[in-house]
Design a protein around this nucleic acid. Structure first.
Length: 557
DNA sequence: AAATAATGTTACC
DNA sequence: TGGTAACCCTTATT
């Protein structure tokens, strides 16, 4: 089963240009004269005589001043959609259900003519999956790495184990939003987390309260962390401050292996930021890439830069991701803001890429499949997850495109679909969802598990107490554990029914408050009830607002 | 509870 | 390529 595609013709690269998807413009100006009292408006262009915009009149008569003072400050104007500024409809939440602006293309699939409410992809994720075309060309990558890379997929797909229950977490662990997560390679219960401030968290989620945050390693966004597989005592980090850090977790001591901004801030045109990072253990290299399109290589023994930076994406554009092939150390994958993911032969970087994977928007991430390294999973800002089933294939088009809501938002860490490293069939991926679903009257943003070979939504996991979007997710390399970063909080998820007794696991969760304490301390927790577990996450505010039938997942569609 | 600030990045011309 | 407007389901705080 799962027939491998074989190619015979020479490689071809056709780059499709964006087809213009016009906007749905139906029923323009509905003449609805609904007048409303509004004190704050986004757009005052429609009401020319709003009070208070005549500042330049230096001299006023007393009469005028009086009149002005007496006149009630009532601004009458039409109710306007906050998205398109037109009247007759309103975008936004109605209770826990979001109503789209009908003037815009669908917020999910980006096609005009409907909204997310009626989008076919909302009902069935696999609806819009493009099946793999029968490919008949053999790409040059095949010949170069034929010996190392041979696609083999188990014929029988095992059932997926989904960690769908929060077992513990740290509320407000970080002082800013979480940007990346990484499990310790050998120490099973250690989770590292990076944040927007550049801080590095080390958390033993088995002893939930054992957590530290290192604050002096980076000065802003810690974008990627990775361990060396040859030395699990040190973790490398790439930051928007332009440095690469190497941190010893035992001592907390960190060294800066590279600084791309030695002269400090000289303006935005010269400030260099590092996003993608990976470790090539076989070659003893740390690879990082910057926001101007360049790749840098560092020697893990000497901590020195090797060679000159190489331009691997469009000049001046951000390289957001790097990934070394798990099987073939010479094979590198990159992705960036120039809408491409690219395959490289590390031995001949200057010779140009081995293949370019075209996307319609920025590519947030690109990962080789974890076992054979023969598939590629990409997440792009056009709300599509793509699967390139065989890197031996012609790379003109992906073999799967899965519509999934993971829009860019400047306040959110970019979404990345990631493989389950334990899945022998290399088909399960996890990614957070942007748009919410109304679950028993509460808007929640699930974490999706998708079978990327079929496009099927395998599971959408939620916790009624987590009402924030969860863009950062990491599956454990060995255990059935999901770590997720949502805003400033961290959570650990495990399968509902994985106890050897066959009984339901203890439902209680251990939630710890991290970071700075509440100004108005929650009574339930008192001052320092650090590992109180009598009530799940009632930290405060939104976290405790959502209180529908606990963990009863009931979708309302 | 309603308003707002903090916040960069992308798309497009 | 450089400059600049947009920005649409954020989150936390006041």
């Amino acid at each position: 089963m799962a027939p491998r595609t074989r190619r015979t013709a020479s490689p071809k690269f056709v780059i499709e240009r964006d087809e213009d998807s016009g906007e749905s413009s139906s029923g323009e100006e509905e003449e609805e004269e609904e007048e409303e009292e509004v004190g704050n408006v986004y757009d005052d262009s429609e009401n020319d005589d709003v009070e208070g915009d005549d500042e330049e009149e230096a001299e006023e008569t007393v009469e005028e001043t009086k009149r002005r003072e007496k006149k009630p400050i009532t601004i009458s104007l039409k109710k306007v959609c906050k998205v398109c500024k037109k009247t007759g409809h309103q975008a936004g939440f109605q209770g826990a259900t979001y109503i789209d602006c009908p003037m815009k293309p669908c917020f999910l699939c980006k096609m005009p003519g409907h909204t997310t409410m009626t989008c076919p992809h909302r009902v069935a994720t696999e609806h819009g999956v493009i099946p793999a075309p029968r490919k008949s060309t053999r790409h040059s990558v095949y010949y170069i790495f034929e010996r190392q890379l041979r696609p083999h997929v188990p014929t029988i797909k095992p059932g997926f184990v989904i960690p769908d229950q929060v077992t513990c977490g740290v509320i407000r662990y970080h002082s800013r939003r979480v940007t990346c997560l990484e499990f310790h390679p050998t120490n099973n219960n250690i989770l590292l987390s990076g944040d927007k401030k550049g801080q590095l968290g080390v958390w033993d989620y088995d002893k939930v309260s054992e957590k530290t945050v290192y604050g002096n390693i980076h000065s802003c966004l810690l974008n990627t962390m990775r361990f060396s597989s040859s030395n699990d005592g040190a973790v490398y980090g790439a930051s928007s401050d332009g440095t690469v850090s190497c941190t010893d977790l035992e001592t907390g001591l960190s060294v800066s292996m590279m600084d791309l901004n030695p002269d400090g801030w000289q303006g935005p045109n010269s400030w260099r930021m590092l996003y993608g990072l990976d470790v090539n253990s076989e070659k003893g290299l740390v690879l990082v890439a910057d926001n101007f399109g360049f790749l840098y290589m560092l020697d893990t023994r000497t901590n020195d830069k090797i060679g000159e930076p190489v331009l691997i994406h469009k000049r001046g554009s951000k390289v957001v991701g790097l990934h070394c092939n798990p099987v073939q150390p010479d094979l590198l994958l990159s992705c960036g803001n120039d809408h491409f993911a690219r395959l490289w032969d590390m031995r001949r970087l200057e010779g140009g890429s081995l293949g370019d994977l075209a996307h319609r928007r920025v590519v947030n991430s690109a990962y080789f499949s974890p076992q054979t390294g023969s598939k590629i999973l990409t997440t792009a800002q056009d709300n599509r997850i793509r699967v390139w089933d065989s890197i031996f294939g012609n790379l003109e088009s992906p073999s799967r495109e899965i519509v999934h809501s993971h829009d860019f938002n400047r306040h959110l860490t970019a979404f990345r679909a990631e493989w389950d490293p334990k899945d022998p069939s290399e088909s399960l991926a996890v990614i957070g969802r942007y748009i919410s679903e109304n679950y028993n009257g509460v808007a929640l943003h699930p974490i999706d598990f998708i079978d990327v070979t079929t496009g099927q939504l395998v599971a959408e996991v939620i916790d009624p107490n987590i009402t924030t979007i969860t863009p950062v997710n990491k599956l454990h390399p060995r255990d059935d554990v999901l770590a997720s970063g949502s805003s400033r909080s961290l959570f650990i998820w495990r399968p509902k029914d994985n106890s050897d007794t066959g009984q339901q696991k203890d439902e209680r969760k251990t939630i710890v408050l991290g970071g700075k304490p509440d100004k108005k301390p929650n009574k339930k927790f008192g001052g320092d009830s650090d590992d109180s577990d009598d009530e799940p996450f009632s930290a405060k505010g939104k976290m405790s607002k959502a209180k529908p039938a606990l963990r009863k997942k009931a979708k309302t569609r």
